[in-house]
Design a protein around this nucleic acid. Structure first.
Lengths: 136, 136
DNA sequence: ATACCTGCAAAAGCTTTGCACCTAC
DNA sequence: GTAGGTGCAAAGCTTTTGCAGGTAT
């Protein structure tokens, strides 16, 4: 959303990147880099933590992953369809289950606020946290 | 926003807490704990970094400060009036200048999404980032 | 006098970087 | 063969914790 792909980087096919994306496609919640690494290790994969960080960044850049920052400041990742439009999430703060939601009004209101206060190059983030049906 | 004050904690009058709040009341932007500590030190105050962290937590809990997490995962703080209703901000990503904004529709839509997906105890956060008039 | 407040230093996390080696192209 | 990918270890950061001494009540 902010920068997008930054320049014509030559990316090779990377076995680890594929594995990470594949792993995340089987998960329906936001995971931290550390969790992803731990899960994949205990699954038997051989890969380093640094690689996880590096490839997650690329996957976000390519639009394969959504990324948010948790209220604790940890970066969290989740798979999402490529070239979907900007969207938001409602996230269970207990089990982490996530639903994608569309709130088109948010986009309009962000634009409006930007115009009123003469801000340009506006981005925004909106995440809704709560307890899902199972957890409440 | 999430927990609120957690229990009847006996808090003494703390000189450092008062100093920190006073300092922040003279600033119109979100600052990190580290920045707050640095500014106050260079101003001649004598206080430790750990104290800054501890008192900031209390000040947020008491409703004297707003707290957000930057896109980089750093916790940021800013003074706000006590018992003001929930509100949002538009923040200059260059100079940090901040305006408080009211977007009542967001509250309604969060409720709506919660109802649709059967979530309870819902909270949300929305922050808008951009470049202010001076910085763009 | 008690229990919270402080500062310092150490420790704990998360994330990034340097480097030598490996591999896709 | 070249440039990106990978793992490991080290380093950088922010934030938390332990502890001895200080201070409000």
């Amino acid at each position: 959303m902010t920068t997008g792909s930054r320049g014509p980087e030559k990316r090779r096919n990377s076995s680890r990147r594929n594995l990470i994306l594949e792993h995340l496609q089987g998960v329906d919640r936001f995971l931290s880099s550390q969790e992803i690494h731990k899960q994949m290790k205990s699954r038997g994969e051989s890969l380093g933590l640094a690689t996880v960080y590096r490839q997650l960044e690329i996957l976000v850049d390519e639009g394969h992953l959504d990324s948010i920052v948790s209220p604790q400041g940890e970066k969290l990742f989740r798979h999402c369809g490529v070239d979907e439009s900007h969207h938001h999430h409602i996230i269970c703060r207990k089990c982490g289950m996530t639903r994608q939601i569309e709130i088109s009004e948010v986009e309009e209101m962000a634009e409006l606020a930007a115009k009123r206060y003469k801000f340009t190059e506006v981005t925004h983030n909106l995440e809704i946290f709560g307890l899902c049906e199972k957890c409440s």
